[in-house]
Amino acid sequence: MSDKGLPATFENPGLPPHIHRAADDDPRAAKRAERQVAALFTLSIIGTLGFIVSYFAVPNDTTVFIPFIGKTILLNILLGVTLAVSLLGIGFGAVHWAKTLMSDEEVIEERHPIASSDEDRAKAVGILNAGAEQAQLKRRPILKATGATAMGLFALPLGVQLAGSMGNPTKALEESKETIWDVPEGGKPIRLVRDVERTPIKASDVAIGSVFHILPETIKDSKHVLADKAKAAVLLMRLHPSSFANDSLGEKAKSWGYEGIVAYSKICTHVGCPVGLYEQQTHHLLCPCHQSTFDVTRDCNVIFGPAKRALPQLKITVDDEGYLVAPQGFAEPVGPSYWERKK
């Protein structure tokens, strides 16, 4: 590229010539614009009054059929539409006013230096020094030291509360491994109960291809039902024993179950959503949040999606009366991975 043909300096092209709008030149157009803006403001007034009238006049249980929406509450529709008209009328009116009638001549506003004059700055420093002198800051340094320390420490209680609310980091790790399925040394096995009805389940009640949503019987003694349930929710499925994979994983799943009935933690190992979509023909268990898919025939190993670990299995058997029980808690922590975890 040669610089031939380029001028030595560029001229400032200046602003393009100003083009007048219709309303600037034609009084009839200006009048029309004025009427349009006034109409928009009037519309807003009508909307506001309509809102107040419908708020008091329309009962809140009257329903109305509206195409594309279906049966809906009349009052909500009226309040929404009138409020929209009220606000949009002001907004559109103001914009239309500015665009058609307010001056749109280009104006150049020169910048001025941001700093104050030297005289003003010297004066301000003088005022500060005089104030410090009057407060006797220089003569009484102990006040300066204790005052500054008090101000600095004042923020600490907030920080302590914030740190304290996060709990004890070493204990939290241990607690994450505990669920209310855990059976104390020599304790009685815990019965499996239905999530809603909280009734125990006989092994003979579980048909092949069926799914039960399970909680431990101990949930009835729980003091923090939601917190405990969030870790103890279990999905129980019954497969035909021949459906399990013919490998070590399939054998393990079968041996921890009872005659093809297997129980797995419902808490996804990805970020802890409840895994519950069980396809009874493919034996795939799907998480609704990020589509992690677990293969029930191979010990709920991950076959698709972002989950990294298999769902923890709950070892189950039956008691003397034929009810399903869990003789021990989960062998590994349930739920999402965390950084201290080796596996």
Partner: peptide, 10 residues
């Protein structure tokens, strides 16, 4: 099809 069984025992 894919749906599990929810019989009267469940």
């Amino acid at each position: 099809q894919s749906m599990p069984v929810f019989d009267d025992k469940n």
